Amino acid sequence: MSITTVGFDADDTLWHNERHFRMTEERFADLLADYAEKEHLAERLLAAEKKNVGHYGFGVKGFVLSMIETAIEVTDERVPARVIRELIDTGRDLLTYPIELMPGAAEVIAACAGRYELVLITKGDLLDQERKLAQSGLGESFDGIEIVSDKTSKIYADIFARHGGAQRSMMVGNSLKSDVIPAIQAGAWGIHVPSDITWALEHADAPESEARFRTIPTLHELPSLLESLT
C-alpha cells in the first residue's frame, strides 16, 4: 500500500534535546563529587530513572526527581539543601533551553507537508513538549499533534487508525525502542534516524529482519525514501 501518513518523533529527531540532559548530568556530578565517583553516580541515577519512569513519566520532572532521590541516597540523607536547590534550578533551566532544529528538519517537514498527512507523536511533559513545538516553528505543518505518556504498539495503532490506518503509515524517529519497534508491531513502517546521543533507556536492537524497517543516516534522506516506497 502507498504511504499516506508520516509520523515524526520530536526530541532528537526534529530538534536537539538529550544533550541538554547530558550537560545537566555533568553539573549533577560536580555537585556531588565529594560523595560519589562520577561513573557510580551515573549508574545510580540511571537506575533511579528506570525505576521512576513508570511513576513520573518521561521528561524533565521525572529526571529532576530522580536526581534528587539519587542525591539523598548517595549522601545517606545528608545532601545539603543548597544542592537540592541547584538541582531544582537545573531542572528549571531544562524547561527554558531554546530550541535548535536538527539538520534538515525544517526542509524535510516542508517537503512532506501537503503530500502526506503529518502527525507529530512525542512523549514527555505536556507543557514542555507544547513549548518546544511552539518555538520550533514547525507546528502549523502538522495535521495532528499527539503528546502521549508512552509509545506502545497499541498507542501507535490507535493514532494511525485516526489517520488512514497503520498499513499506510510510517513512523520516523531516533529511538529504536520507542519510535521504530512498536510502530512496526502496530503494522506501520519504522524508520530509524540515529542521533549522536541517545538516552540509555531508549536503546534496543535493530529489527533487521522486519520488512518494514529502514535506517537512514539523516532526515535529508527521508523524501527520497518515501518516493521509493510510494
Rank of each mutant, 00 (worst) to 15 (best):
I121H: 01
R214K: 12
L46P: 01
V6Q: 03
A161M: 11
I155Y: 01
L31Q: 03
M170F: 05
V53M: 11
H40A: 08
S2Q: 12
T24N: 01
R22Y: 11
L201E: 09
I181C: 01
P98F: 08
G187F: 01
A113V: 13
A134H: 14
G114V: 11
I191G: 03
G137S: 12
T122L: 03
R214A: 14
E26R: 10
I72N: 04
L133Y: 01
I88N: 14
L46H: 05
G59E: 10
F58N: 11
L225T: 08
D179F: 14
M170T: 05
V180N: 00
D30G: 15
G59W: 12
Q185K: 02
T5K: 05
T70F: 03
I88G: 06
P103S: 07
R92Y: 03
Q167K: 15
V148Y: 04
D128K: 01
G114N: 11
L45A: 05
K151H: 05
F63P: 05
L46M: 11
L118I: 13
P194E: 08
D76C: 14
L222N: 00
I181F: 01
L14F: 07
S209T: 15
F8N: 00
A110Y: 06
I68V: 15
I181Y: 02
T198K: 08
L14M: 13
S136T: 14
V64H: 05
R27E: 08
A29G: 05
A110F: 03
G114P: 10
D150Y: 12
H40V: 05
P103A: 08
H163A: 00
A111Y: 02
A71V: 04
D125N: 14
W189S: 00
G164F: 06
D34I: 10
A71D: 02
D143S: 09
K61W: 10
A200K: 13
F21K: 08
G54W: 06
V53D: 02
T4S: 12
M171A: 11
D34E: 15
R212H: 08
H220W: 07
T13W: 00
F142P: 08
K154A: 07
E210Q: 14
R82A: 10
S209A: 15
V53T: 11
T152E: 01
Y116S: 03
L87M: 15
S141V: 02
I145E: 04
Q129F: 06
P182M: 03
M67K: 10
T75M: 07
K61H: 13
D76P: 08
E202A: 10
D76G: 15
P223L: 06
D76Q: 15
L127R: 13
E25S: 10
G114S: 09
E26C: 07
Q185C: 00
A183R: 00
L126M: 10
G104V: 09
I197F: 11
I159R: 00
T24A: 12
